[in-house]
């Protein structure tokens, strides 16, 4: 494929990457840079969860735990055992993958939402362990003094350098997700969501595919946790309660299920909206999130990225009901 054809095919991705990577050149204010930095790590988690929910039709209610594995894995290994941060990130990601496989294999064989239940329980157990295993995690005191990421003399503790690194990785994950959705695997995953039996009879190994995507989402979350912790330099269990798992699900749902770009818009929206709401009264933040979850599910199942289909939907709504094709939910 020629360069022009490639550029045309991936115009959206290339444009978005250009904007994301050039942003620090125009933003001098570290406050905005820090919001963008958190957006990058949120995007990493959201991409994985988006694949799981949108492509495999499964929900994880304990994704905070996978972020915690990455974050605490990096924090503990670098501060206590002086492991190289990059190696620590890799080991933590492998651990997350292993745990995801153990959780996924038995539950994803079953029809229904057993993964949701299992991840909910798993998330709580991880949270309890973070608090109780004081010898390892320092309990509720949290771990401070976590070093920045470096390569040789290149220090990614600086806001701009961190921005490029974190967004570079996030964009890489975005590209991977887009490719996955386009690939044969992606098509078989969507088949799972729509018609499991049909997919099965066509020879798609449904439960294996689901486990695969769950493991990928756990790895994305773990890597995000590692990046987060090398940026914020301090970590405590509070950040990884079930509430955070719910916030993650909200991010993906608001952005839009079934479309990788939903994760992008969801992440951006969920990090900038609270900054905006702050000006009024933050007590309402959760009320707004909750109502938006309901409203989006009912009226806008495609989330923010689904907004572009709204005109068509409206047109259909005003046609006589018996002329309607079946709702494509």
């Amino acid at each position: 494929m020629g360069i022009v054809a490639y550029a045309r095919k991936h115009a959206a991705f290339l444009a978005f990457s250009a904007v994301a990577m050039c942003a620090p050149l125009f933003i001098g204010n570290k406050y905005y840079l820090s919001i963008l930095a958190f957006t990058a790590t949120r995007l990493m988690v959201a991409l994985g969860l988006n694949l799981l929910m949108g492509q495999a039709g499964q929900v994880s209610l304990g994704h905070a735990a996978f972020v915690a594995i990455g974050a605490y894995g990096s924090a503990v290994m670098t501060t206590r055992w002086s492991v190289n941060p990059w190696l620590a990130m890799l080991v933590a990601a492998l651990l997350a993958a292993g745990v995801a496989a153990i959780l996924g294999v038995p539950t994803l064989k079953l029809r229904g939402h057993y993964l949701a239940m299992a991840t909910l329980g798993f998330g709580e157990i991880v949270f309890i362990l973070l608090v109780q295993l004081k010898g390892l995690t320092l309990g509720t005191d949290g771990i401070s003094g976590i070093p920045s990421l470096t390569i040789g003399s290149l220090d990614f503790g600086r806001p701009r350098a961190y921005h490029w690194l974190a967004w570079g990785v996030a964009l890489l994950m975005l590209r991977m997700s887009l490719n996955l959705v386009d690939s044969r695997v992606g098509r078989s995953l969507r088949a799972l969501d729509r018609a499991e039996i049909a997919a099965l009879s066509l020879g798609v190994n449904t439960s294996f595919r689901k486990v695969q995507v769950f493991v990928v989402s756990a790895v994305f979350a773990s890597v995000a946790g590692s990046f987060y912790v090398h940026y914020i330099h301090y970590i405590s269990p509070d950040s990884f309660s079930v509430t955070f798992s719910v916030v993650l699900v909200t991010t993906v749902v608001l952005g839009g299920l079934g479309n990788v770009w939903g994760a992008v818009w969801g992440s951006i929206f969920m990090l900038f909206l609270p900054e905006y709401l702050k000006r009024f009264n933050q007590d309402y933040t959760n009320l707004v999130f909750g109502l938006m979850l309901i409203v989006v599910m009912i009226f806008l199942p495609g989330g923010l990225v689904g907004l572009r289909h709204v005109p068509a939907r409206l047109r259909r709504r005003f046609t006589p009901p018996d002329a309607l094709p079946a709702e494509d939910t």
Binding site: G57, V59, V249, T250, L287, G290, I294, I298, T329
Partner: peptide
């Protein structure tokens, strides 16, 4: 919240109940 989604699949319904729990709590 539930009525409009009765035929929409369990995932959507679960998410709606999560949203309701956030809203009611707040």
């Amino acid at each position: 919240a539930i009525r409009p989604l009765l035929s929409a699949g369990v995932l959507a319904q679960i998410i709606v109940t999560i949203g309701a729990s956030l809203a009611i709590r707040t």
